[in-house]
Design a protein around this nucleic acid. Structure first.
Lengths: 366, 366
DNA sequence: GGTCTTGCCGAAACCGGTTTCGGCTTCCCA
DNA sequence: TGGGAAGCCGAAACCGGTTTCGGCAAGACC
């Protein structure tokens, strides 16, 4: 006996849990019957069902999730794998998002299993491990990319998944998704600025691996179109991710020979970078130059002046993603689970009617 | 050994996983033997072990985690329950922390199960559910409180847990913890300021439900002591949590009749609140008034001037917490798992030798 | 009154692993 | 040469559930 590689003795767990066998014994029936009663099978009488249920929660019975999983193949858990080498930008977003996800999962009696990855390959491997070990029944995929590799992998494996965002430019996705229309917001932003009297409206976009970057840029373009303004590549900057990137882009726009009198940023974070530059140049945002952005991070509200932005409710997004994913896992066809909502405009002190023309602005800066 | 036609399965496209029975069949031995070989039992020959292992990963065998859990009682998962009604302050902290936790859990082949709660009662219930369903083997408890109720519950139930922080003021905790000595940092901050020439050093502390609030305050006190300065309750403010709170506290200190020339904040976030107030009052931080804080959030680095602070590595903290918790789950006595590290000072432009005395400062402000 | 349903539940197999128990070889040594 | 101890593995129980199958009893139908 001592030659067995017995693992070190585990710590004592809670007072022995009540199993379905205990329950069956107390009720004087077989565990099969108890199981079917609890799972609401049609071949169990109403009388028996209520008797079983009552006794179950009198005794504090909770089914052993793992044991159920062995037979049913359902881990009753949703997977979420975070890319952790990424820039910090998802931080503010993360907490609300997780709150939404966990809230919804616990409502249906499931749990959220979180992993992390340091590279694209690692991401796939981490997800593969979770699937192979049957730890999760499906995945939520935040920060959708163009032609998202996670989605490609999972669908090839037949694992249910849902995107937060879209992944196929403007073409209809083949997969399930929940998204908020950034393009509508950008379009609205441009038209709103135009209505205030702005005619030179700049744009600072994001990194092109993310699908939303393309969508929002298209929205900006659409907005110009509806406002009757021409698209001028000189007014557009790309690839901004951090506040610093936003600052650089803003400086390059505002110091150009024909500076914009208003700038639309595709994210709040990059927009806030512009605040420092403006201060440096002696410009007052919301007065000398207007700024609108997108996301609705807390800092946007606390900045001075407060940033006009389109607010995204990540909490409710997380909630809906779980509901939709659950439907897919339960057999709904993925294409039936697609939802696109719009962000709400949140007024702020960062926009106003133009005080100076582009020329005057340039002269003022010099 | 003829191949039967595949049964007509529902939507489950995933290629049927290889089970331990398949593996045993291929190897021509019983699944019991295979299991023991894979789990490195002493009564299996080395030859057989390697043969089994080789075949296992040739066939891509991955044990079904849930099935293992049924017999072993190990879910191979760590629980983390977030309080989601809380102020946003834990956002920046959250991502790094989760990265550390998930990184460490996946290194040992485990996973992280995340839940959320909206109140203290909900917190206990959520944890109870995870334990009862045997979804987790132990908990990491972030944001330790004084006499932490989560810890009390879990130890009463015999469920392994580890605190991120301490929960018993200065008395030795009875439970396991990993923490970073905020008190040492505060003490060092005061002495550092004193060495620069400051003699009136204010303090802005946190909310008293959290244990670290008391520890850091005591560190401040200790620092004064070592610097030979008297503790003056008029220089101390409590209960600051948000940037706004920090701003209010700072204003109240700086507008008092004998303002401090330097202020120690117990968190970066509250310290950054002071920046706005300083600007309003025409004071330059790091010049007219010195500020030191604690945490090392990214914004501290991007602020102008950059904030001198004590940096906490939440990623590595998460990693260590998992290692220590795993040891407890494997049978190590909880009291043996205690670790206290120190935060690294990160210089910033927010401190300098005092330019004005307290009196001059007051006059300057008026 | 006999036959057919229908309702309801027990019995047992099953899910994919782990662990106990015992028996057969082989080796060692008297 | 015999007996005991290792060494090694097969057989089967077990973990806590779910699901299939079949049978009994009561009611419906003719």
């Amino acid at each position: 006996m001592e030659n067995l590689a017995a693992p070190t003795t585990p710590v004592r767990l809670a007072p022995r849990r009540v199993t379905i066998t205990d329950l069956a014994e107390h009720l004087g029936m077989t565990k099969g019957t108890v199981s079917r009663a609890l799972n609401d099978y049609a071949d169990i009488s109403e009388t028996t069902k209520t008797r079983v249920r009552r006794e179950a929660d009198r005794m504090g019975y909770r089914p052993h999730a793992q044991a159920q999983a062995v037979r049913t193949g359902r881990a009753k858990s949703i997977g979420l794998v975070l890319q952790i080498d990424e820039h910090d930008g998802q931080s503010p977003f993360l907490k609300d998002f997780i709150a939404g996800l966990t809230g919804a999962t616990s409502e249906i009696g499931w749990t959220l299993t979180v992993g992390s990855a340091t590279s694209d390959d690692d991401m796939i491997q981490t997800m593969a491990r979770m699937v192979d070990e049957r730890k999760v029944d499906g995945f939520v995929l935040p920060r959708a990319r163009v032609n998202d590799h996670r989605l490609n992998y999972l669908t090839s494996q037949g694992v249910p998944a849902i995107l937060y965002g879209r992944s196929n430019f403007f073409a209809e996705d083949t997969a399930a998704y929940f998204d908020i229309s950034g393009e509508d917001a950008m379009e609205d932003a441009v038209m709103r600025l135009h209505a205030l009297g702005h005619n030179r409206i700049g744009y600072v976009g994001g990194v092109d691996v993310f699908n939303f970057t393309h969508l929002r840029h298209e929205g900006y373009r659409e907005g110009l179109d509806k406002a009757g303004l021409d698209y001028d590549a000189g007014l557009v900057r790309w690839g901004a991710r951090t506040a610093q990137d936003g600052a650089d882009a803003f400086r390059s726009l505002i110091e150009s020979s024909k500076p914009p009198t208003a700038v639309v940023f595709s994210t709040d974070e990059t927009a806030l970078g512009a605040y420092h530059v403006a201060r440096d140049l002696g410009l007052r945002i919301g007065d000398d130059v207007s700024v609108v952005a997108y996301d609705g991070i807390p800092e946007a509200d606390h900045s001075d002046p407060s940033l006009a932005t389109y607010r995204v409710d990540n909490r409710s997004a997380g909630h809906k993603l779980i509901e939709m994913l659950k439907a897919i896992i339960d057999g709904a066809p993925a294409p039936s689970q697609r939802l696109l909502e719009t962000a709400k405009f949140h007024a702020g002190g960062s926009i106003s009617a133009p005080r100076r023309t582009s020329e005057e602005l340039r002269a003022y800066i010099l």
